[in-house]
Nucleic acid binder design. Sequence first.
DNA 1: CTCAAATCAGTAATTGTTCCTGTTTTTATT
DNA 2: AATAAAAACAGGAACAATTACTGATTTGAG
Lengths: 123, 123
Amino acid sequence: MKGSNYSSKRELIYSTLCSTKSHPSAKWVYEQLKEDHPDLSLGTVYRNIALFKENGKAVAVANILGEERLDGDTSAHAHLVCKCCGKIEDVDMPSLTLKGDTKGFNTDFVAVTYFGTCTECSE
Amino acid sequence: MKGSNYSSKRELIYSTLCSTKSHPSAKWVYEQLKEDHPDLSLGTVYRNIALFKENGKAVAVANILGEERLDGDTSAHAHLVCKCCGKIEDVDMPSLTLKGDTKGFNTDFVAVTYFGTCTECSE
DNA sequence: CTCAAATCAGTAATTGTTCCTGTTTTTATT
DNA sequence: AATAAAAACAGGAACAATTACTGATTTGAG
C-alpha cells in the first residue's frame, strides 16, 4: 500500500525537510535537491510531503504568500511569523490553560502562531 | 486613497462575512451575494477582503483544502479545525504563559488553532 | 528470477487568487 | 445640479501553487 515501500527519493526529501529550521515550502525542498538530483520531479516532492503529513512526520506551519510552509520537527513548539518577509522561527510552546468546551472535537494537535514583524523588517 | 471611499459592495461583503460563524472562504461570500447581486464580481470580493485584512477588520483563520478561510470577528478567540470536513468552530482563547524569548519579533497577533476531528466525522 | 505493487518523471490540468482594461460610482468643487 | 478626479467596479485573462494522469522504473515477496 501507499507509503509502504522503501524509496530513495522519499529519504532525500525527508532529510532535506529536516535539515533546516527555515520552515520551507515544497518548492524550496525541490530546488535544494535539484542540483544533485536533476531527475527529481516536483510532483514527487509534493506527493511525499503529503505522505509525511498523513503519517505525522511533518506539519504545515502556515500559508505565507500563497505557499504552504512546512516543518519536519513535530515536537511541541510555537512559531513566530514575520508578516513582512515571511520568515518563520521556532519559539517555546507556551503553556495553555483551556477554558470552555471543545464542542465534541477530538483534537490531536495545537498550533500556536505569533504574527508580527522581525528585527530586520522593523529596520 | 485606497479604501477611503464609501462602497455599497464593500458593505455587502463585510456584512456577509460577519453574518456567519462558519469562517467562510472568499468564494462562499461571493456565492451568497451572487443571487441577490448578480453584478458582483469575484475579484471585488477578493479585493475588499484584502482591504479588511489590512485594516484589521478581518483575519485569515487557516488554509483548508487550498482555500483561505476568514473570520470577521477579530476578538480574541481560538479555533477548532476538523481535518476531515474542514469545519471551523470558535472556542475560548486559552490563557497563554510565555517562556523563552521572542527573537526580537514585534508581535501583534496570536493564533491558536486546534486540529482534530469533529463529532460528525467521528461517526 | 518473476511478477505485481509502489514509486517515479514529465507534463497536462486544475483551481484559488491576482492583475488588467475599460466602465461606473463616489466625492469634492463649483 | 454640472464637472472632474479619484476610487471602485465587472469581466475576463493571467498567474502560480498544487494535483492528476500516463507510461516507465524501482522495489519487495515468493
